[in-house]
Amino acid sequence: MYAFGYHRPTTIDEAVTLLGQSEDASAIAGGQTLLQSLKQRLAQPGELVDLGAIKELSGIAVDGRTVVIGALTKHNEVALSSEVRKAVPALADLAGAIGDHQVRNVGTIGGSVANSDPAADYPAAVLGLGATVETNQRRIAADDFFIDLFETALEPGELIKAIHFPVPKRAAYVKFAQPASRYALAGVMVAETGDGVRLAVTGAGACAFRVPAMEQALAGDFSADAIKGVQVDADELNDDIHGTPAYRAHLVNVLARRAVEAAR
């Protein structure tokens, strides 16, 4: 790692101030992704602002209509929460499929969503369940949040406080892991919500995206057969040694059908 200054604020305001004081400050939540980049000297922040001591950012609240997860809530806290599992089993399943057991003990939902890694799992949940991202400044609808590869609607000085997930009628997340990294080679979250069917894909493109053609087909007939012939455009998809665009496009369809069948 290159040298950096380290700060451990205990309030959001203090964190925002610290982040504003330096051009090249970076926030660190669980750090399960960021620290790997720092170790490999792929990033060089001058100041690191550790959000880990901000107590108000952590925790899960469930009511009949919404699951609210604080930004610093760890993946295993979501995966192993009986309340989350009861309200949105797909969300608990998704959290339990992130990284590995040790990563899930440290990694946080806010860190994952803010990073917008193209192969991360949580963006599929945020987008697929139609969640709202609550920051220290505003509330951002999922559809407006993910912009591109590692790019979100967050402004400088803006920190995620919590994610609000509306409870769907039924939903499921199905992931096909890249064999080496175990990140999503493709992952699909499908949800039948009060506002219609939503289907979001991660791992396949630059960032998480919805598939309107599948959503429309499923709106009329929520069955795997309804989307059998609906393909995503391979031209837009990622290409690497583990998956060609054509393979990813095919996987999205397979996983979408499996998700529809698994939705509960």
């Binding site: 380290y6 451990r8 660190i28 750090g31 399960q32 620290l35 790997q36 170790k39 550790d50 880990g52 057991h101 040790q102 990563v103 003990n105 440290v106």
Partner: peptide, 11 residues
């Protein structure tokens, strides 16, 4: 259980 290579001593 956590990976000590993925946590700063400061954290």
């Amino acid at each position: 259980a956590v990976k000590a290579c993925s946590v700063l001593a400061a954290q």
